[in-house]
Simulated scan of single mutants.
Amino acid sequence: MQSNVGLIIEEKAADIGNFIVGRLLPFRQKRAVGPFVFIDHMGPTCLAEYENVDVLPHPHIGLSTLTYLLDGAIFHRDNLGNAIEIKPGEVNWMTAGNGIVHSERTPEYLRREDKYLHGFQIWVGLPKELEQSEPSFHHINKEDIPTWEENNIKFKLIAGSIDGRKSSVPVHCPLYFLEIRTEAKQTIGIGDKLFGEVGMYVLKGTISIDGKEYGSHQLLVAKEARLCEFETNGETTVFLFGGEPFPEERFMFWNFVNSDKELIERAKSDWKDQNLESFPKIPGDDKEFVPLPDLPNFKAK
């Protein structure tokens, strides 16, 4: 029987300033999975008392960001005035639309002690008609994330909709981001509940598909979502994400995503010039910012 695994993407290190993450998307052979255009796996790592996450104020357009933590804490601020700490099991959902600026830092009370950090930073493209919408931000508490158990398999629907269940995260297009945990060997046939394109990330343990074993730090992209079936080999945690791809191509430069390259070029110019009408300062975090990357010959792709 031919395998349903169409592509295997190995997690690769990426430097986001003073922190190294494992980048899963985009990949040269696969720029997106459904509406998901960017996925970073943060950690797991222990930061010493002198090490802190300080992602300085930076802009986005044309996308929604999803931050989901498994361990640790990050303090979010944005130019809409939101200032909130995100903890394990919670979700920060920020829609950039026509432009937003935010920062992510270690909370003040943790900055002088050892701490752990583990989670995901995800970008989801916006439907074309919403790429120029007004920006917004939502924080979703962990008790508002749907969880359930079937046949000793634990499910958590972090975002989107699946099989009649819906997450509280206010997504803008058909998608799903699902956590699956098992403590013993299990066969999981879930393809009849999926749609569009689907990717699978093995966080812990191993899985088997058509007799072949796959471990952590690998992103598997299925040829057909409806054929998604796998076997966990004991205590295992996997994440499934996907949904309907957009009919138009999405282009990306740095933190900007859009179906229109001219809007990306405009955002580049506005951020370089620190145009405060397009990208206002963040209340309480307005002293620093990440400069536009010096890539003069690099265009959105």
Rank of each mutant, 00 (worst) to 15 (best):
F251V: 01
K287C: 09
G242E: 07
R250Y: 12
L295T: 11
E244S: 14
I264L: 00
D273E: 15
N233F: 13
F279A: 01
R266A: 11
A267I: 02
E262Q: 11
N275Q: 03
N233L: 15
E265K: 09
D270K: 05
D294P: 10
E262G: 02
F289G: 04
K272R: 11
E235I: 14
K268G: 03
P247E: 11
E235D: 15
P245A: 05
P280Q: 06
E249P: 08
G243V: 14
D285L: 07
F239Q: 11
F251N: 00
V257I: 11
V238L: 15
E244P: 08
E248A: 12
R266F: 09
L295D: 03
F253K: 01
L276Q: 13
T237R: 15
D286A: 10
F279Q: 00
P293I: 00
W254T: 00
L292Y: 04
D273R: 06
E231D: 13
V238F: 15
P293M: 00
S278F: 07
G234D: 14
T237E: 15
M252T: 12
F239H: 11
K272H: 10
D270F: 06
P283N: 05
N258V: 07
E229Y: 09
E235H: 13
L263H: 11
D260G: 05
G234K: 13
P280I: 06
E244G: 09
M252L: 12
L276P: 07
E231R: 15
P293F: 00
S259T: 07
E288F: 07
R250L: 10
F246I: 06
W254F: 02
D285W: 04
E288W: 05
M252V: 13
E249W: 04
V257R: 00
P245R: 04
S259R: 02
R250W: 06
P245F: 03
K287T: 10
P296Q: 09
M252D: 02
E277K: 10
G243D: 07
Q274S: 08
W254N: 00
L240C: 09
E288G: 03
E277V: 05
D270H: 09
N233K: 15
E231V: 15
F239T: 07
K272S: 11
D286V: 02
I282C: 03
D294W: 12
N255Q: 06
F256R: 02
F241W: 08
F289C: 09
D270I: 01
K287F: 08
P247S: 09
P283Y: 06
T232G: 13
F251R: 00
E244V: 14
R266K: 14
K272T: 05
E288R: 10
E265R: 09
R250P: 03
T232D: 13
K268I: 10
G284H: 06
